[in-house]
Amino acid sequence: MIELGESASFETVALLHLDAAYNLARWLMRDSSAAEDVVQEAMLRALKYFSTFKGTNARAWILQIVRNVAYKNLRSTQEIKTVSIDSEPDENAESIPPEALIDPSDDPIATLIKQRERGYLTALLNRLPTDLRECLVLRELEDLSYNEIAEIANIPLGTVMSRLWRARRLLIEAVQQEAR
């Protein structure tokens, strides 16, 4: 996976996986400057523990730290929101699909998505609960295996599969029910 010879400095490893780290943070935080904060904190944390890192899958290791920092930050901002009057959608609530009374469309999913405005799928993904969105982003955008996702998210393989399944079902149902 990494072809750098015998050993590499932290700087090399960090910069090699910076885009993967930023992409995950950006999808988890849904905000670019919050994502940069997460990546910066994660990378400095990783640097601190790099000398104890004995593995070879540096990308998974860095993504694991990124997701932990992201969840920590999400939790702290949520605490602030619960005391404010702001009514942000609850991270844990599965906000899609709303119990719609219309019949779901039978057209192919790809066709239904193409009929929508640009950014429709991004908006849908952003409405998913964080843990489901995380698995889908790691699978479809970072091309990681179930095993790698299990390691990064610190969950059993079966949970990876069921989260991916729920994420996909929710998206498919939302696309069908919101079809015009």
């Binding site: 932290f10 700087e11 910069l15 885009d19 998505i113 799928l121 991004t122």
Partner: peptide, 30 residues
């Protein structure tokens, strides 16, 4: 359905990349 969704996700979702400024900043910090 799963295949359709996979194709659509891969075609339409953005894989965000770190900006050049952020990359440089991080490099200096490290």
């Amino acid at each position: 359905q799963l295949m359709d969704l996979k194709q659509s996700l891969r075609n339409e979702l953005e894989r965000h990349t770190a900006s050049a400024d952020f990359r440089a900043l991080l490099q200096r910090k490290i």
